[in-house]
Amino acid sequence: MAASRTAYGKRAARPRGAGAAALAGVGLLTAGLLSGCGTPGVRQDDARAAADGFERALGAKDFAGVCARLAPPTREEVEDSEGKGCADAVPGLSLPGAGSPVRVTVYGRQAQVTGPGDTLFLSQFHHGWRVVAAGCEPRPGQPYKCTVKGG
């Protein structure tokens, strides 16, 4: 490595050609290994697990657990539209149970999880996957119609 003097008379090391390229290569390799956590298969498994947790909470009538698995805007929409707290509002929504996820499709930070009784839409937030829409039914040539959705 070549060295030069700084304004304070100290030596400052500067990497040269091959050394800089090696450092850049190590940085790219490290970034590549760390981003492996977000591979499509892992995101798909995580979205499936989040949907499964939502369905288990719904089936167990753990309405606080259902609300904890909703995306913040969706939870706020439930509370605003029903005029009460989320856990008190969920029983009146008559959400169908989807059952175990049959198909999980991930598009970046969005996912669609379909079970035998329902379709859920999820988004990946800082603290994991959250349900943004539930009780969704397909409509030919139109967007899904959802019982619960974020504003």
Rank of each mutant, 00 (worst) to 15 (best):
M1S: 09
A3Y: 12
S4F: 11
S4N: 09
A7Y: 14
A7P: 04
R11V: 05
R11G: 05
R11K: 14
A12E: 14
A13S: 12
R14K: 06
P15C: 08
R16Y: 01
R16E: 15
A18P: 08
G19P: 02
G19E: 14
G19N: 07
A21M: 09
A21Y: 07
A21P: 05
L23M: 14
A24V: 14
A24Q: 12
V26S: 12
G27P: 04
G27I: 14
L28F: 07
L29R: 13
T30D: 08
T30V: 13
L33Q: 13
L34E: 14
S35W: 01
C37P: 05
C37Q: 11
C37K: 07
G38A: 13
T39W: 03
T39F: 02
T39D: 14
T39A: 11
P40C: 10
V42H: 11
A51D: 08
F54G: 03
F54I: 04
E55A: 06
E55G: 03
E55L: 01
R56N: 08
A57M: 04
A57C: 08
G59S: 10
A60T: 10
K61P: 00
D62C: 07
D62T: 01
F63R: 00
A64V: 10
C67E: 06
A68C: 06
R69W: 00
R69I: 03
L70K: 00
A71Q: 02
P72S: 09
P73R: 06
R75T: 06
E76H: 04
V78A: 02
S81L: 08
E82H: 09
K84T: 09
C86Q: 00
A87H: 00
D88P: 03
D88V: 03
A89N: 10
V90L: 02
V90P: 01
P91K: 08
G92D: 09
S94P: 03
L95A: 05
G97Y: 04
G99L: 05
P101M: 02
P101D: 02
V106A: 01
V106R: 03
G108F: 02
A111H: 05
A111F: 04
A111N: 00
A111I: 01
A111K: 03
Q112K: 15
T114R: 13
G115A: 10
P116G: 10
P116Q: 13
G117Q: 12
G117H: 13
G117V: 11
D118K: 02
L120I: 05
S123W: 03
F125T: 08
H127V: 13
G128S: 11
W129E: 00
W129C: 02
V131Y: 01
V132K: 02
V132E: 15
A133F: 09
C136K: 02
E137P: 07
P138W: 06
P140N: 12
P140I: 13
Q142V: 07
Y144N: 12
Y144D: 14
K145I: 06
C146F: 15
T147H: 05
G150M: 01
